[in-house]
Design a protein around this nucleic acid. Sequence first.
DNA 1: TAGCTCCATTAACATAGGTTAATGAAACCT
DNA 2: AGGTTTCATTAACCTATGTTAATGGAGCTA
Lengths: 211, 211
Amino acid sequence: MLYTCNMQKIENSALPAAWLTEIQRTFMNYDIPEDEWEQFRNRLKGLKIERGEFLVQEGSPPEQIAFILSGIFRAFYLTEKGEERTIVFRDKGKVLSAYSSYIKDQPAVFSIQALEPGLLVYISIEEFENLLRNHPFWEMLKSRYIMDLFIDKEKRERSLLSDDAETRYKIFLNDYPGFIKRISHYYIASYLGISNVTLSRIRRDIKLQNS
Amino acid sequence: MLYTCNMQKIENSALPAAWLTEIQRTFMNYDIPEDEWEQFRNRLKGLKIERGEFLVQEGSPPEQIAFILSGIFRAFYLTEKGEERTIVFRDKGKVLSAYSSYIKDQPAVFSIQALEPGLLVYISIEEFENLLRNHPFWEMLKSRYIMDLFIDKEKRERSLLSDDAETRYKIFLNDYPGFIKRISHYYIASYLGISNVTLSRIRRDIKLQNS
DNA sequence: TAGCTCCATTAACATAGGTTAATGAAACCT
DNA sequence: AGGTTTCATTAACCTATGTTAATGGAGCTA
């Protein structure tokens, strides 16, 4: 996989209205008032990204908060031994950001990579900070969002502590429907905390159980 | 270990001033304004708890946010097989609550148990809600606190994904200085995600390495 | 002090998962 | 179509960790 950089930026004025409607749907749960949405929308830009490219690089400060229109992305880091560990996958309708590093105002502790060609809409951290300063609503949204992230993490901690590899794989299938066909098993194994060989074994065992 | 209930409540008016000073120190990082502190302090109560007793029971709604003056506590849950998994230990100077369940307004997904006789000062969830309604400061503190929790969880996820048992044990020794002597190794193993036998083996190996 | 309980340690054995390497199928390129 | 690359699968072997059970020390209680 090549790590070239052919990302294509799309200015706010050139964003298709349909994309913005799509993004608005991402935030339905957060009940954004119309006037706040107005402010937000005017700060958005678009990004076309190719398979293998990085939206965020481990060690660099996070630059944007993005929303996925299409494609699959993963957040991952390298262990001391140089092995990859995948923290999370994200696809259409999800937020994509090195959020915790932004919160801590520190360089990203993981990279974010496109696993398929993708379309993103994003707001730069700088613009988001402007929004925060003048619109308390966004401070509220920021903290509600981190609660959601925290709940996800708590769930993952629990699974890593109590479930064996096969169970974790079945939970993955459930949490990420369709991903098993779209993503290299190598990445899935690195998310489950097992080797790709073990993942294959598990898949064979499940097949045998079902026949 | 017996699970009797001999908790002893201490009314606000009977709280020693020294305890309150101690609590204030817990919150130093959060820069609580004097008048907010006043409001908060008047809603606090004390609790004496014995070894083995539960502050929070898995499945019950969380009732308070507590601050540890003395003692050691752990949060844990039971797996489907009935095995215990410890999520976190906490001692003097730390906040103690089924916080995520409070946030989600759901029953606690873990229990909190005293591993030593302990002293707590707490505010009931109900009173804290009253505070929230009239004092925006506390909403801010609430979200800053969840950020801290999130960062802890991220660290733990990373460790569970990339570190082997021996490394996790060494990190435990570092993160929780002195705990190895105060807590049953059985609980520590359940925190590290290994059996108590494996923990003993690791300890022996480290001894051998150092001699 | 004797007896009891708790619990850390150790040994012996069993199992899950890692590592390396070989194979073959699918996708991609020219 | 031929060649190349990618990658899931499988086998063989190895290591880490789990399970069970035995041992013995520390601390408590009568």
